[in-house]
Amino acid sequence: MTQSKIKIYFLGTSGSTFTGRDFPPCIYVEGFLFDCPAQCPQKLAERGLLGSLHTVLLTHLHMDHSLGIYDLAWHLGTVMSERRLRLYLPADGRETVSQGFKVLGGALSGKLLGFFEIIEVGDGFVDNGIKAVATQHSVPAVGYRLDIGDVSICYTGDTAPSEKVIEAFSGCSVLIHDSTYPPGYEELAVRDGHSTPRQAAEVARLAKAQLLVLVHLPYARLGDRVGEEFLRTAKEIFPKVVVPEPGYVLELGGASWR
């Protein structure tokens, strides 16, 4: 598939809220972090990945995708770190995050916010191997394409099926796609700014992705076994699909993935 050696850590994979064994998407690759729910900083530390983190890519500011940035900054302050992380977020999100730090950090808000270099992004934004694309969700949201050597990792965040996503993520090595609603709920998924596994697989097929990974599954509502149904449904449309367990590591290297 590729000659690069890349590991993608799926620390959290659940949709919208935590369960006893999982929490919302938190995906680490080569110092980059896609989304940062509340549980994410501790899990990064547990896996020995926190020290190498340099960039956080937030798809949107719903709490299940962003609350961890406040705890992350609090941790950096507590350990007296001198690090400064790049924080990418949707356009006009800076003020929302700043207000969040004022509410949660009080007099320390300025210091806490200072741990981040905030970069607002919109549709078509490109910077150092990162490309943003507007997605279809209930609030302003973007997906990200991250190119590392000859590997392209594409993450939608929460979104309904999107022609823009298909175009921006064309030919990607790995497509990590929202799969919040079960098969048969396609219309409701679109109205809510989400996708089903069937819709995610169709996006992967049209984008000519090499591998599809389904995340943001409704484990809290439907139970852990829902992953089997989602995997089976997606494979009816697109053959190479993974539904990762929390903590799963996808290794890209040589001529295969595993």
Score class of each variant (00 low, 15 high):
166 I>R: 01
170 S>Q: 04
152 S>H: 04
173 S>L: 00
163 E>S: 02
179 S>M: 02
115 F>C: 13
128 N>M: 11
74 W>F: 05
177 H>W: 09
136 Q>C: 12
125 F>Y: 08
96 T>K: 11
127 D>W: 12
171 G>T: 00
149 G>Q: 04
104 L>D: 13
139 V>T: 07
182 P>W: 13
110 G>P: 01
71 D>G: 15
159 T>H: 04
94 R>P: 10
180 T>D: 04
108 L>N: 05
69 I>A: 11
90 P>D: 02
177 H>G: 05
87 L>A: 13
170 S>G: 05
171 G>A: 01
174 V>K: 00
70 Y>S: 03
168 A>H: 02
150 D>K: 06
109 S>K: 06
132 A>K: 03
103 V>C: 05
154 C>T: 03
144 Y>H: 11
65 H>R: 08
161 P>E: 06
144 Y>I: 05
122 G>D: 12
131 K>I: 03
152 S>F: 01
152 S>R: 10
75 H>A: 14
150 D>T: 12
132 A>T: 14
95 E>T: 03
134 A>Q: 13
172 C>T: 15
171 G>R: 00
70 Y>W: 11
178 D>C: 09
114 G>F: 14
136 Q>D: 15
139 V>R: 01
143 G>H: 09
174 V>L: 09
91 A>V: 11
103 V>D: 02
140 P>V: 07
180 T>S: 02
111 K>N: 09
75 H>Y: 10
102 K>D: 13
180 T>P: 01
137 H>N: 13
94 R>I: 05
117 E>T: 13
86 R>K: 15
83 R>C: 10
182 P>H: 08
169 F>C: 08
118 I>Q: 11
150 D>Q: 08
135 T>C: 12
108 L>C: 04
143 G>S: 10
139 V>D: 00
87 L>K: 14
114 G>H: 11
78 T>H: 14
121 V>T: 07
114 G>R: 08
147 D>Q: 12
73 A>I: 10
124 G>L: 02
95 E>W: 12
92 D>I: 07
101 F>R: 09
71 D>L: 09
119 I>M: 14
175 L>K: 01
152 S>N: 03
113 L>W: 13
74 W>A: 02
89 L>Q: 10
122 G>H: 06
167 E>R: 00
142 V>A: 06
172 C>M: 09
154 C>R: 00
151 V>W: 00
93 G>L: 04
170 S>D: 06
